[in-house]
Write a protein that binds this DNA or RNA. Structure first.
Lengths: 214, 214
DNA sequence: GTCTATATTTGGATAGAC
DNA sequence: GTCTATCCAAATATAGAC
């Protein structure tokens, strides 16, 4: 996704960096690779972002803000509806991410970047994520808790840990799962969403049907 | 896991590298960090492994061979039994990995290393994994196919892609999920296995119960 | 805001003594 | 097999002209 050359230097860098970070990791992609691919000067990164870490944070923040807003809005819309079920909440979590993945402004790599960032267990990126992502996860955790009242707190955290990791990984792989010929991107996306939702719902609900669900 | 100092240089390097690669990624951990932490000389890496890439491959290979053998043995034992079900096959996949994770020789980091390696989409490490891991995944795919005959091939690959990624990620996070006080490591591990198995089984079987399963 | 040029640090790899 | 010392390439970062 080499970013149209009529974009500003700043935007070109962000766009290319997103792609390279997704492919090679944060440590694995050098500023020289980034600036060469973006066809801007090496010094431009430091001018615009201060440092490599600054660039990384900005690459993440740029789309994460949007994603967070989309997810919280979808969650609120869902939980306001009487009789919403687990699948609706999961849809609110998954759909905004995959919609961003297929937007025409090239957000395809971002979900993979997010998965990479998620895997980084130390450093300031970890704190950054906790600060800017944690509140969204907590909101969803609450929604899940309300829908699965018979599952005790520890047990639920168990399952959420697994499901969050699993979904992150699965969504990161989304761009690479080839769609069948004759299937439109939109259909393909809906297909993916449906699978992930059902898959995660089954995992979260597992063992509780007889007690909680109809 | 700083490797007892009475181990050979070679073993110390492998052990420390495994830990650092798990924490910082392959590109993120330098040979200087590795050799410093292992308290061996910098030049020892090149002597024993030829290059950093050589070290990476050896870190992966060392335990992957064991893991592959364990999984295939468990799979064969399972499929030989009349009336085995999806959960049994999943157990054969998951249990050897988590047993390695809790072995006393410090294989805890390896599953995370494997997840890192799995995420690397290019380079020779990718080929290495395809060569040394692909046949195991294919065996399991066949076993799943036999147990889910009503799911067509494309659909099954869909689900396996998701499940394999999800399990890899979930198992990688295993070391970090804190166990409750008063729960033994063994109990904790059995608990985890049970959850992952049920979770994955639900995802794979989802939508097929009415047709295939009892 | 963008460029050239360069400073500075870090990392991978090797030579050669022991 | 291990060490010291060193080389060389690559990476981040900055200075200063335009």
């Amino acid at each position: 996704m080499p970013a149209p050359s009529n974009f500003s230097t700043r935007e070109r860098i962000l766009s290319v960096a997103e792609d390279l970070f997704a492919r090679h990791g944060f440590a694995g992609a050098s500023l020289r690779q980034v600036t060469a691919a973006a066809r801007v000067n090496l010094a431009a990164v430091n001018y615009h972002f201060g440092s490599k870490d600054g660039l990384i944070e900005e690459v993440v923040r740029r789309r994460l803000d949007d994603l967070n807003r989309g997810r919280l809005a979808a969650l609120e819309a869902t939980t306001r509806r009487e009789g919403h079920v687990l699948e609706d909440v999961l849809d609110a979590f998954i759909r905004p991410a995959l919609e961003q993945s297929t937007a025409d402004d090239g957000g395809a790599a971002f979900v993979r970047v997010l998965a990479r960032a998620w895997a980084e267990s130390d450093g300031q990126l970890r704190r950054f994520l906790a600060d800017n992502y944690g509140h969204v996860l907590r909101e969803f955790a609450l929604a899940f808790q309300r829908l699965l009242p018979t599952v005790d707190r520890d047990e639920l955290h168990w399952r959420l840990d697994i499901v969050a990791g699993a979904l992150t990984y699965a969504m990161a792989g989304f761009g690479m799962i080839q769609r069948r010929e004759g299937t439109s991107p939109t259909t393909h996306r809906e297909h993916t969403i449906e699978h992930l939702v059902r898959f995660a719902a089954a995992g979260l609900r597992e063992g509780t049907q007889s007690r909680a669900e109809g």
